[in-house]
Nucleic acid binder design. Structure first.
Lengths: 229, 229
DNA sequence: CGAAATCTTGATTGAATTCAATCTAAGTGG
DNA sequence: CCACTTAGATTGAATTCAATCAAGATTTCG
C-alpha cells in the first residue's frame, strides 16, 4: 500500500507471527514463495490485489507515475516487510524488485473470508494500515518542507534505523533514492558528497553499491528533526 | 490522522451513519458539540487522543512542524469529515480551526471498548484509515513530483470534488494552501493568476476569500493526472 | 476612518535541475 | 587476462523554477 511495514519485533509469535500479526486465526493459508528478478514487476497500479507479500530476501520499491513518466516512490520494502495488502481489491501503486528478491505470498481471499469473524486479526490489519499511514505522513513533511541535504540525511537515518545498524549497504540506485525523495539523481549524489565532507558518513568500500558508515549525531544535525512540543 | 475522511454518501444510514460508519453497534456514545474560534487548536501533536471529531461547520487544518517553523499541512477537514481518530493513543499532528468551526466529539474510549467485539465497526475503522492512507499517497506524488501550477490546479480540483460543485469558496488563506502544497504563498498567488489567464478559473467575487468558478477541463489539462495503465 | 491583515505583483536571488562530460565498477567475449 | 562495452555515479557549468525580498493594493475589522 505504497508504504512499508517495518519488521516489528515486539509482536507476539503466533501462527501469523511471521507476518507481523498477533491473531491466532488459522485462516491464513495458501503460502507460497516466489523470486523476482531485478527490475521485474510484482504487481501494477490498478491491478486486482490477489496476494499479500512479505519480503524474504532483497528489496521492493512501490511507486506511482505521472503521465509523462515522473515517478514518486512511496516506500522501499526491505526484508521482513509486509506489502501489497489492500482494503479495496485493487493495488494503488506499482511494486517492483530493486534487486533479485524472494517473497512469500499469502492469498488475499484468506483475509477476506475471516474478516468479519476474527476481530483480533482485524485489529492487526488496522495496526498495519496505521503504520503505513504514519510513514506516509512523515514522508509528506519530508517531501513538502525539507531541503535536498535534509532529505538525504533523513533517508540515511531511516535506512539505518530499519537496518538496526549504522553500517548500511543500499540496495537501490541513486535514481531510486531520488524518486523516493522527490529529487534528481545528481542532487542525491551531490548531497551524499556534502554529507561525507561534513563527516556525517563515510564509505567503507568505494565500489558502487557501497557500504556506508553513518555518523548518527552529525546526520541528526543535518536532518531537521520534526518539532515535538 | 493527518488526512481527511471525505463525506461518503454511499455509506448505509445507521446509528453511526453520521460518522460514516456502517456498524450498527450502540457503543458509540458521549456525543457532544464544541465550537472553535478561528485559529484555535483542537489538539496538538503528541497529545493523548481522547476524542474523535466530526466537522459540522467550518474547516480544520492538520499539520506537522519542523523545529525551525516550516509547516506541512497534511489535510483540510471540511464539513462532514471525521478526523482525530488514532490507533495509538497519541495524535500524530496538530489540528487547528481554519475559520470558526463547530465539531461533534466522540469519546475515544467508546471505540476501544468495543474494539475487540464488534468486527463490523473494525471494518469501518480499517476503511477510514485506508481512505486517509490513499489521500496521503496521492499527496506524496503531488508534493514530490508536481510543479507549482500543477499543485494548485490539483488542489482546486480536489476542493471542487469534495464540494460537489465547480463553485468553491475557499475557507483557508494563501499561506494555508501554500503549506498544504509545499509552496510559498506568493507562488500560490502567482499560480492562481496564471490559471485565471489560462481560463481554468474565474473569480465571481473579488473579495479576498473569493468564490472561484472552476473550468474542469482546463484544470485537468494543467494538473498532470496520475498515469493509469 | 485608520490600522492590521491578506493578497498580488515586481525584481532579484538561490537551490535544485538540466545538460554535458568524465569516472568507476562490473560485465563480456576474444 | 586484457580490451571493450555498458550501467551507474560523480562532478562541472548553465539554466530554470520557485523562493526571497520588497512594494503596493485590497480587504477586513476595530
Amino acid at each position: 500500500m505504497f508504504v512499508s511495514i517495518t519488521n516489528d519485533r515486539s509482536l507476539h509469535p503466533s501462527t501469523l507471527g511471521d507476518l507481523g500479526l498477533t491473531s491466532t486465526s488459522n485462516a491464513v493459508i495458501n503460502l507460497s514463495e516466489f523470486t523476482y528478478k531485478k527490475g521485474t514487476e510484482v504487481f501494477g497500479e490498478n491491478e486486482p490485489a490477489e496476494y499479500v507479500y512479505q519480503v524474504k530476501t532483497g528489496a521492493i520499491r512501490s511507486y506511482k507515475l505521472l503521465a509523462d513518466g515522473r515517478r514518486q516512490i512511496g516506500a522501499f520494502h526491505l526484508v521482513g516487510d509486509v506489502f501489497g495488502f489492500e482494503n479495496a481489491g485493487v493495488h494503488r501503486f506499482t511494486a517492483e524488485a530493486v534487486v533479485e528478491t524472494t517473497a512469500r505470498l499469502f492469498k488475499r481471499q484468506s483475509f477476506e473470508g475471516m474478516a468479519t469473524t476474527d476481530a483480533l486479526l482485524l485489529c492487526d490489519l488496522i495496526r498495519l494500515t496505521t503504520r503505513n499511514l504514519k510513514h506516509a505522513e512523515n514522508h509528506l513533511l519530508l517531501l513538502g518542507r525539507k531541503t535536498a541535504v535534509e532529505k538525504v540525511a533523513a533517508f540515511l537515518v531511516e535506512m539505518g534505523e530499519r537496518n538496526g545498524t549504522d553500517n548500511i549497504a543500499l540496495p537501490m540506485s541513486r535514481r531510486d533514492i531520488a524518486d523516493y525523495l522527490g529529487l534528481r539523481l545528481e542532487t542525491v549524489a551531490r548531497a551524499l558528497t556534502q554529507l561525507k565532507k561534513a563527516g556525517a558518513l563515510s564509505f567503507t568500500h568505494r565500489n558502487h553499491r557501497e557500504i556506508i558508515l553513518l555518523n548518527r549525531e552529525a546526520l541528526a544535525r543535518l536532518d531537521q528533526e520534526d518539532f515535538v512540543t
